[in-house]
């Protein structure tokens, strides 16, 4: 299959659109999650969404992405609330709380999934796909939903940019000047949950976390400015969505989700090596040049170099 005919195929166009928008929005939201040290929240939430999705299916009996979204959002909000409650009220640390909620919710989800399988065996195939994602079988309606929600997410991040920035870097100050930090915190969680839920559809539970984390970490290497980082992370995400989808439609039998994640990982590795100030190559060069022209440095210059 040659390149040109690939892009003319309307079906591929849909999928390309969907995965690029998905990468864009999750990259943007992932940047905030990364700066707030909540990267693994995406992992926990994508696992925690499973029981919500199963319950939504059991209650409505339809496989509509809209009801799945509502179920998953409710489950996600419950999960974040539970993680917060456990870390605040007991000696359990946040990482263990995340792990507990992740596994227990997922376990309950699997129990519900088997219940669905046993009750009406013909109907559950779509739910099974939910675990590992099936970007290649996205239909027009799915892409519309993903595109619409991604656009809303990006616009919301743009509108609340100042607030999120403050919340990420100095929550104490944000509280001090009268911002409703708890509300904003919940709002950001809601955005993460939404991104996770639309992403699960395309790349699956396990790999959704990567779409939130990897582009953001890669973007962090290139810049010290938040707005640049957010834009870069969005671009990285969109680019990996593009590459992953194209490769998977050219090579037979390769799933889209892992390929999107792998292309994001390649971008990450390139960033680690080649980024201008924080990259490995730049640091090595700095070290070599510092060694070769060694001279007694003043405190000021040491500070400059080490930053």
């Amino acid at each position: 299959m040659n390149w040109f005919s690939l892009f003319l195929d309307p079906n591929t166009q849909w999928i390309l659109m969907g995965s690029m928008l998905l990468g864009l929005s999750s990259g943007v939201i992932g940047s905030f999650a990364y700066l707030r040290k909540q990267s693994l929240m995406g992992d926990a939430l994508s696992h925690a969404a499973l029981p919500g999705v199963c319950l939504a299916y059991m209650l409505t009996g339809t496989k509509s992405i809209f009801f799945f979204l509502i179920g998953a959002i409710i489950a996600g909000i419950l999960a974040t609330a539970a993680i917060g409650y456990i870390t605040r009220n007991s000696r359990i640390k946040q990482d263990s709380a995340l792990g507990i909620i992740l596994t227990v919710f997922f376990g309950v989800g699997i129990v519900l999934l088997t219940q669905i399988q046993h009750s009406n065996s013909g109907n559950q195939s779509g739910l099974d796909k939910f675990l590992f994602g099936h970007a290649a079988s996205m239909v027009k309606l799915d892409v519309y939903t993903i595109a619409g929600i991604s656009a809303v997410l990006v616009v919301l991040c743009f509108l609340f940019f100042k607030e999120f920035k403050l919340l990420s870097f100095d929550p104490g100050f944000a509280k001090g000047i009268g911002l409703p930090t708890i509300l904003l915190d919940q709002f950001m969680m809601l955005l993460i949950v939404t991104a996770v839920v639309i992403g699960i559809q395309a790349v699956g539970v396990v790999l959704m976390a990567a779409l939130l984390i990897t582009p953001a970490v890669a973007a962090r290497y290139w810049t010290e400015k938040l707005h640049v980082m957010v834009i870069l992370a969005g671009l990285f995400g969109a680019f990996s969505g593009f590459v992953g989808t194209v490769v998977s439609s050219m090579v037979n039998n390769l799933p889209t989700g892992p390929l999107i994640v792998l292309s994001a990982t390649v971008l990450f590795i390139i960033s680690v090596l080649a980024a201008p100030n924080r990259g490995v190559l730049a640091k090595t060069r700095l070290r070599v040049s510092a060694k070769s022209e060694y001279q007694p440095l003043t405190n000021q210059r040491v500070k400059e170099k080490s930053l």
Partner: peptide, 11 residues
């Protein structure tokens, strides 16, 4: 720390 865990295991 948590981001590096996330990047590595998903990759």
């Amino acid at each position: 720390a948590d981001a590096s865990i996330g990047v590595v295991f998903t990759a």
